[in-house]
Design a protein around this nucleic acid. Structure first.
Lengths: 229, 229
DNA sequence: GCATATTTGTCCGTATGTATA
DNA sequence: CTATACATACGGACAAATATG
């Protein structure tokens, strides 16, 4: 039996459920970065009151998924070059250190293995979005090795932001496929107790991924010119 | 001229100002851990509407300073042994790594030096709360070395939580005074470019501090028995 | 630059459900 | 078990800030 992943308590209040829903809509691209979210329009379309929606806005703004411009409204966050660099800086610092100092028989390893295996299956089926999800789960597993609730939460937030940035790029195969094998290699090193080597490998992985994402992002900016967003 | 510290935008809306105020009241011990915050009573005493206060509650709950119990209300967070351990785990991981990989001429160093000098003055004046504030500023400076907005924000939150825990202990001299000299030593190593040694020293510092806080906390629990909170 | 329309920020009153004495 | 207090959620109101023509 594998222990269950540390999971947030199920949403009980309406605002918590709506927050979940909006989070999903944003990270899955149903709402576009930069888009303004009108309190009136959105509260009507979600069939909730403006007050409840405003509470949700505050929470999602704290998550970094929305930007609040006082007296002007809230907008879906627009990932910038700076934010991508920042996110990868956080990832390198936290993931590599968590892996390097991991406890050899930590339960999160099982989740890492599951993510790798699921990734292999999804890649075989050319389900690139599935591969992306598995990839995120793998790296979430790495952070769980550090056994810190607060790091887990920060990292989940950062991954949601990164997912928002990926949505802008629209090439999931290009973005995720190369990393299935690298994840597997890192997992094998970790299972062999070679945490130092695993961390070094992971660092290269992250440098590589950051370069890829930034390049794709730069191309997208160029293609859009000043019309975008 | 020293560059200004990265600062959050000044609160413009009422709810932002109230959030600031409540944050201050909680971290400075004007509201006790475990205390229930009634929407009606608090909104009246702050002279704001319940809707506005609820928005503030959501934000402060995300900060970890309040706990939200659905249908039961919000309470000032009660620092637990587990949360203190978690906080120090985060501190060791982030601070040590930020220091180890610091850029030699980073502007945050100036803030670290200011904090150390201010700490020496406050210690000479037996202003232990002042020493505590300087100490927090010093460690915030260390994290700023990593140049990551997201890490800065996470760390500011964690320090606020830690301050809440310190408030429970009520012995600022005992808690903060020993660390002025250790901060100075770490700063000198950093200024000499010995970042590896500085990080090692910092790690010992944090292990020491965690032990001290946990011991004081355990004594307090014992003293209170089951009456507390 | 001005007048107007729209939208946010904030407040209030109230109905309903949930927890607790 | 009932009663009470409270959080949840809604809808309407209005001033102030902002966007629009």
């Amino acid at each position: 039996m594998t222990r269950p992943a540390p999971t947030s308590p199920p949403p009980v209040t309406l605002s918590e459920r709506v927050a979940e829903q909006l989070r999903r809509m944003i990270t899955q691209g149903e709402l576009s970065p930069g888009q303004r979210l009108s309190e009136q329009a959105l509260s009507e379309s979600l069939d909730i009151s403006r007050n409840t929606l405003r509470e949700v806005f505050r929470v999602l703004t704290k998550d970094g998924l929305l930007k609040h411009a006082p007296n002007r409204g809230v907008f879906v966050a627009v990932p910038s070059i700076a934010s991508i660099i920042d996110i990868y800086r956080v990832r390198r610092l936290i993931e590599c250190q968590a892996l390097r100092e991991a406890y050899p028989r930590h339960p999160a390893k099982a989740r890492m293995r599951q993510a790798v295996e699921s990734g292999l299956r999804h890649r075989a089926a050319s389900d690139w979005l599935g591969v992306g999800t598995d990839n995120m789960a793998f790296h979430m597993g790495i952070v769980e090795l550090a056994d810190s609730e607060r790091l887990n939460q920060l990292f989940a937030q950062v991954l949601a932001e990164l997912r928002l940035a990926f949505g802008l790029l629209r090439d999931p195969e290009f973005l995720h496929a190369p990393y299935v094998d690298m994840n597997q290699k890192i997992l094998e090193l970790a299972e062999a107790g070679e945490f130092g080597k695993a961390a070094t490998e992971l660092n290269e992985y992250l440098v590589h991924s950051e370069r890829l994402v930034l390049a794709a992002y730069a191309r997208r900016i160029e293609a859009e010119g000043l019309n975008g967003i």
